[in-house]
Each structure stands twice: as C-alpha cells, then as structure tokens.
C-alpha cells in the first residue's frame, strides 16, 4: 500500500506564525585568560575577541511550514536554532512563540513552551548523556511530564525506537555502544517522544546513510501531515533541503542574505552567495572531478568585512558593497534578498 503524499504545500501566508525572530543578535566574547586579565589590570589594552555569531536576524515561521536553513559552516545556524529552541537567550532582540516573548514566560508556561519545541542536535556524540541507558534517554522526559504512565513506559519506548528505525531490543544499552547514525536516531526518538509541535533539526540526518535518511525524512513528512508539525531544518545537504522545504533561508556570516520559496531558490537564486553555493553542489552523476578550493579569502566572524559581508568573495562587488550593508528587501512576493544589485534593476 503506497500512500500518496502531496508535494510540499505552500502554507497560506495568513497562517499565524508559530515562531517569530525579531532583530536577534548573538555575540560571544572570548573570556580573557589569566595573562590577559593581568595585562589589562596593568593598564595594557587587550583586545577582546567578539564573535558576531548572529547579526540581526528577522524571520517568522508559520504553523505547518518546513523552513530550510542553509549557509556556510560557522555562519550561525546552530546558534540561531538554539535560540529558537529556547536553549540559549539572544544577546539582543526577541524570540516569540505563539506571539509571546520567550523571556516573559515563567514557571509552568515556560516549561510547557520549551517542551513543545524540540531540537535534534548536530552532534550525536555530545548530545546524549553517556551514563544513561538509551531507554531512559528517550523515555525519561515523557514520563516526567506525564505524557506516558509508568505501566506503559516500556511499550511507549519501544514504539519510539521502532519509529526512528531502531531495534527496541537495543534499548538497555548505553550510547557508546551505538554507531554515529544509531546515536543520531536516538536523538530523533528522544525529540519525538515528547510530542512536540515544532522541531529544530540541526543536521538531523547528516550522520545517516541515504536509505535510513530516506526513512527518517519520510517520517518527518508523515508527522507533518498527521500532526501539523513545523520544522526549522538546518542542513548542508542541499538535495535534502530542496526535497523537504517549503521555504529556504540562506545565511552568510550571521546574516540572512536570501529567503524564498524552495522552488524559486533552486530554480533561480538571487543572491550571489546563494548562486555560488548552488554551483558547488556535488552530483552523483559527476565522476572524478577536480574539486576547487574557496576563491578569495574566507571572512571571519571575529572581524566581519564591512558593508556587505560577502564582498571579499563576490564576483559582482562594487565600491558601494564595501561601505554599505545591503538591507534584506522584498524582491518579489515572498522573496527577500540582501544585495545592492537588486537596486540597479
């Protein structure tokens, strides 16, 4: 019996947002080591390194939508994901869940909101407690929060395991006895076990072979249809993002540079960075090719370039690009891009 699923449907623009990110910044300053502190006390000016991980992001995600988030390694995707999941507060700006600022919530409400948003972490090694049996990793939160009764615990855990493609017979083991991809699926089972409404998937399927990846992605799509789940899907795999997302957001060095319906991005990217990214995608039909190094200097979030962050690598860079930050502006209905070239037209 094969179910027929609709292709990603456009979620009506009128659907209220489940999450809104408003003017969000996240800066990390490197804590000074002892020598530097001493030097500073002696009156020496010591430069403190500040990483501008997320540099003014606005974004809203509607209920039932799948938003793909892509961008260079280190551009702030995980940091943004953590803030959206309420695990990390922004330095500046606010994050709203169902219209309410996460910071204004307290007690039971804060906990409930947190539970409704689950994150699947990028690193399957660091995100599982090594001292817990995997059945407890998956089943503890549902038990504590009353989603399952003690007498139903075993059956519930088995179901979560099976759903994530894991053999329930392995549930008494500890994380180190699993392979990378098996650990990733434990993380997925844990996130789904608390019946969330919003999932932040940070490279959730990167550690999986393509067949199991297909199984998990099909599960995500099915849950979306059945439970109206919403996803922020962070991934470097543009094939996966294209397959799954309604809308794609592209980040570069802490900023959103383009945002558009998935088909539009993959058919005709607007921003030069997006274009560069798409041209590098390896294809399974290409054999023994010569890979190319990055052209131009890779900028650092410690000292981001002035104006448009992409200008040192942009083939179209103009004088203005070095001075003025391009605003993220609407270039067509539902499409935004941050590039000065759009002014010329």
């Amino acid at each position: 019996m094969s179910e027929v699923m609709d292709p990603p449907h456009a979620v009506a623009a009128t659907t209220p947002p489940i999450v809104e990110i408003r003017g969000v910044y996240k800066r990390f300053s490197r804590s000074l080591d002892f020598a530097a502190k001493l030097a500073r006390r002696l009156g020496v000016t010591v430069r403190e390194d500040v990483v501008h991980a997320v540099d003014g992001v606005d974004l809203s995600i509607r209920r039932g939508e799948v938003v793909g988030l892509v961008g260079e390694s280190g551009c702030g995707k995980s940091t943004l994901g953590r803030m959206v999941a309420g695990i990390m507060p922004p330095t500046e700006g606010s994050i709203l869940s169902h219209g309410r600022d996460l910071r204004s919530l307290s007690g039971v409400e804060a906990r409930r909101t947190k539970l409704r948003t689950q994150m699947i972490f990028q690193d399957p090694y660091a995100s599982l407690n090594p001292r817990l049996k995997v059945e407890d990793i998956v089943g503890e939160a549902p038990l504590v929060h009353g989603l399952v009764r003690r007498e139903d615990f075993a059956g519930y855990v088995d179901e979560q395991f099976r759903r994530a493609g894991l053999d329930p017979g392995l549930k008494k083991r500890y994380p180190h006895q699993f392979s990378g991809g098996q650990r990733q699926r434990i993380g997925i089972a844990r996130a789904l076990a608390v019946q969330p409404e919003f999932l932040v998937c940070d490279e959730a399927v990167a550690a999986l072979d393509v067949s199991i990846q297909a199984q998990i992605l099909n599960l995500f799509m099915k849950l979306r249809q059945e439970l109206d789940l919403t996803y922020l899907f962070i991934s470097h795999d543009l094939g996966v993002v294209e397959h799954l997302s309604d809308r794609v957001v592209i980040m570069y060095l802490g900023r959103v540079v383009e945002e558009a319906p998935a088909e539009d991005v993959f058919r005709s990217a607007n921003h030069p960075y997006t274009q560069a990214l798409l041209s590098e995608v390896p294809r399974i039909d290409t054999r023994k090719r010569a890979f190319a190094g990055v052209k131009g200097e890779i900028p650092s979030p410690l000292a981001p370039p002035s104006g448009c962050h992409f200008h040192p690598r942009c083939p179209h860079a103009m004088e203005r690009c070095r001075i003025e930050r391009p605003a993220l502006r609407e270039i067509a209905p539902g499409r935004r891009s941050a590039c000065h070239l759009n002014d010329a037209a």
Binding site: S2, E3, M5, D6, P7, P8, R162, G165, D167, G169, L170, D209, V210, S211, I212, Q213, A214, Q215, L217, N218, M221, D237, G239, V240, E242, H243, L244, E263, R283, I284
Partner: peptide
C-alpha cells in the same frame, strides 16, 4: 541498488523517498 535509489535527487521533490523496506538486522 536500494541505497542509490534513496538519494533525494533521484526522487521527485516532496514525494516520499524510496526506501529499503524493513529494518537493519541486529
């Protein structure tokens, strides 16, 4: 063959990806 068939670019966008039936044996 099953593995190669599961690659997203080999599947229609948004359609369920073809997957190998059953589960990894213990």
């Amino acid at each position: 063959a099953g593995l190669i068939g599961s690659v997203p670019s080999r599947n229609r966008r948004g359609a369920p990806l073809s997957q190998i039936p059953g589960m990894t044996p213990s």
